[in-house]
Nucleic acid binder design. Structure first.
Length: 575
DNA sequence: GCCGTTTTCGGCCCGACTGTTTTCAGTCG
């Protein structure tokens, strides 16, 4: 069985869960969690590092012990430490930790006193009224557990960033209209531009007597009030999205923003730096003893620990603190840096608008060029273009280019990569185009080596320019296909072609860590909307968010190039 | 279990809210 980084991370998380239930040293538990997160976010696979003879203890948060355990997992597919834990703690207990309101202490108590191991057993125990008799458990706790179990069994979903935006923007506007409210900001993973969010954290600055809390819990989308205090309230909307509101004083806004934007790992690292300087950092400010030394702005918080301000998208403790210390933080790409879009559809295939409408919409958004890349013939469900229809489209684009000012249309195609790695249209026709965007739309289930070979072969066909949505995942719907992305990235560098970061919010593919890997290999990323209607061009902002999470700078992105430079780069792939 | 400009031992982020307590433990973020 091939061992992926995610497998190792999952084993370490399991170990952490079970240790926690056992009542182990919390710092030891944290060490496993830290390691799990580090391995999960690592670009190259641990397996490949071991094969190269690299010393794993050079990875932060991996010491001698964990390096040994990682090697054992890579070699044998399992961990003796986990197996031994299973002898003492039933494996199923870890799943109970996922139920809100149940932490390690309560799970352990339920197990020891009532023999509860699974959610189903827990449900029975609650219904029989056996919970309320336990020390530390009361009637309310019992009822909360029952409710949490019911929602847990329906499984709480995460929300895509675009969906979250649809819900939170009107709420922010509503809160801003409250008397006494000064400023309302969404923090949390939303501000870090994560592709999905579990819940939303909103910060508001308000005068002491402002009714903002009451107004928040009275919002007409609210289904349930989870908790409500003076400075913090938590509600669940009818769509099941949880939203937390915190009211902070103006002088604390920077500290609160920093604190509630996270990530947790980033904040721990920042507070540790503070600690080394004898500073206490919390959501109210930075303190030396009882004296406030910073906190009104985020800049002041970072400055207090000797760091420049760090962009929210970087705050994952994946090296941004070290980069900030060295003064080598990336200057992240911005939406305004994009000069064009190299992947868009028209009604010729499965889009809704005409070429002209798409061109004008792109121009309206300040873009200088747009590639028309409809589907190719084998994607019949999308009315993919055959040779005759593509030839006609080429002529139409040439006519439009004569006519339109301020926007240049590239002749392109989103050509299917067939199972054997050949492309879905003849080379002679592809050679008449400006840009060839290749994509996998079939045979997602090929095993890793075959899928990788298929894609690499396609990239090496003449005229291949950009690999579209490289992993094929659809958030919440379809997993990425099994492909050796590190190899694909290396091959792209050899071939001189490009990878796409597809900006559709359900794709956001390439993912952030692979963007980082592509950057380090010198492979340019094309941030494309894959728009199927004019409004779809607005998705570019989500692509920019993911690109920023992947540390990309303007120079790392293909379509920040001027029309002239881009023509030259595309030409070099068209041979 | 990791880590080191307080360095090989002794630390390890910190506060709000809830419920069951009567001064605090557990959970969460």
């Amino acid at each position: 069985m091939p061992i992926h980084n995610a497998d190792i991370a999952a084993i370490f998380d399991d170990i952490a869960d079970l240790l926690e239930i056992e009542g182990a040293n919390p710092f030891r538990v944290r060490a496993y969690r830290n390691a799990a997160r580090t391995i999960q976010a690592l670009g190259p696979s641990v397996k490949s590092l071991l094969e190269k003879g690299e010393d794993l203890t050079r990875i932060p948060r991996i010491g001698k012990d964990l390096a040994g355990k990682i090697k054992e997992i890579v070699d044998t597919g399992q961990s003796r430490a986990l197996a031994e834990l299973h002898q003492r703690v039933p494996a199923a207990l870890a799943a109970l930790l996922k139920i809100p309101g149940l932490g390690p202490k309560r799970v352990r108590a339920l197990h020891e006193a009532l023999g509860v191991n699974t959610a189903a057993q827990l449900q029975r125990a609650v219904r029989d009224g056996r919970i309320r008799g336990l020390a530390g458990f009361g009637e309310k706790t019992e009822r909360h557990i029952l409710e949490a179990l019911e929602t847990h069994m329906q499984k709480k979903r995460r929300f895509g960033i675009a969906t979250a935006q649809d819900y939170v923007e009107p709420l922010v506007a509503y809160l801003e209209k409250t008397p006494g409210v000064d400023q309302v900001t969404v923090a949390g993973s939303y501000r870090r531009c994560k592709e999905t969010v579990g819940d939303l954290d909103i910060l508001a600055t308000a005068s002491r007597n402002s009714p903002v809390m009451e107004r928040f819990t009275a919002y007409d989308e609210v289904d349930q009030i989870v908790s409500q205090g003076e400075t913090r309230a938590s509600v669940i909307l009818r769509c099941s999205l949880q939203i937390d509101l915190r009211v902070v004083e103006k002088k604390s806004l920077g500290a609160a923003l920093q604190y509630f934007t996270g990530s947790k790992a980033h904040n721990i690292a920042v507070r540790r730096l503070g600690q080394q300087r004898g500073l206490k950092i919390n959501e109210y400010g930075v303190f030396k003893g009882n004296k406030r030394v910073a906190g009104a702005t985020e800049q002041s918080v970072y400055a207090s620990v000797g760091l420049p301000w760090i962009a929210p998208e970087l705050r994952e403790n994946r090296g941004e603190i070290e980069a900030a210390q060295k003064g080598s933080l990336p200057s992240l790409v911005q939406l305004a840096d994009l000069k064009g879009d190299l992947h868009a559809h028209t009604r010729a295939s499965d889009g809704q608008d005409s070429i002209r409408e798409m061109a004008l919409a792109a121009r309206e958004r300040g873009l200088r060029y747009l590639a028309v890349t409809d589907h190719s013939r084998s994607l019949t469900i999308a009315r993919g273009l055959d040779e005759r229809r593509l030839s006609a489209q080429i002529e139409e684009i040439e006519r439009l280019n004569e006519e339109l000012d301020g926007i240049h249309l590239f002749k392109g195609i989103e050509v299917d990569i067939l199972e054997d790695g050949t492309l879905d249209l003849p080379e002679s026709l592809l050679g008449r185009l400006d840009v060839i965007v290749g994509a996998v739309h079939s045979k997602f289930g090929l095993e890793r080596a075959k899928q990788t070979r298929r894609i690499v072969r396609a990239m090496n066909r003449p005229h291949f320019s950009i690999l579209a949505h490289p992993s094929g995942r659809l958030l919440g719907e379809r997993e990425a296909y099994d492909v050796d992305m590190a190899q694909v990235i290396r091959e792209a560098r050899e071939r001189g072609c490009f990878l796409e970061l597809n900006a559709q919010p359900q794709r956001l593919d390439l993912i952030d860590t692979y963007c980082q890997l592509a950057k380090s290999e010198g492979v340019l990323i094309s941030i494309d909307s894959d728009a199927h209607r004019t409004a779809g061009l607005d998705n570019l902002r989500f692509g920019i968010g993911q690109a920023r999470r992947g540390w990309l700078e303007r120079a790392d992105v293909l379509n920040t190039r001027s029309l002239r430079e881009l023509r030259k780069l595309l030409k070099s792939t068209m041979q």
